[in-house]
Amino acid sequence: MSLAHEEVLSHPDHDIPLEYSTEDGVLKIFGFWIFLATDLILFACLFSMYQILHLNTAGGPTEQDLYNVPEFMAETLILLVSSFTCGLATLEMRKGHRGALMAWLIVTVLLGLSFIFLEVREFVDYVGRGATMQRSAFLSSFFTLVGTHGCHVSLGILWMLSILYQLGRRGIQAITARKVFIVGLYWHFLDVVWVFIFTVVYLQGVMH
């Protein structure tokens, strides 16, 4: 909000995207980049936790026992595609196409939901095989790392739904444009984190 100097642009300039057209938008987008940096550190701590504990299986299920290549590949590809559709949504927004923007966001939400569905199914499957969080340090850190990412994705879905509602009511304007751009940043960031989960957790786990 606010304050020091009003609109950065007093005249309409077509080179500057709508989400950057107010000082409010500029501040919030920058603030969100900083927030992503904090989230990055948060995941860094969880990753180092996982890397230290992933061999401490205490006689319980190991990585090789649990991870299943088609399953995690499906999750990965779905999330990669959703990141792409989310990027298309931002591009459509810049062209001012509200319908296409909302359509791509809905596709992104649906892909996100199917990702969450697959992940929940995976978790339920593990728990059914006795691989619970309480079983070993490895599983505690697995469920926490992957689960934290899953919570982020779920939150992102709720957030997108709220923005879809606002787009429906208010159309594309400075505030909604900023919101779409920021939720996009968030979504791509989660894709980046997932790529590391894919690499460090799953690929490393099936390496032998």
Binding site: V26, W33, I34, A37, G184, H188
Partner: peptide, 26 residues
């Protein structure tokens, strides 16, 4: 890839502080 293609990483109004912030974050 994500930063370049999807996150419009180099865009900004004014100095690109977020680039340095993210670099420091990495």
């Amino acid at each position: 890839v994500q930063l370049a293609f999807f996150m419009h990483f180099t865009e900004s109004a004014g100095p690109r502080y977020h680039v340095s912030a993210l670099a420091l974050g990495f």
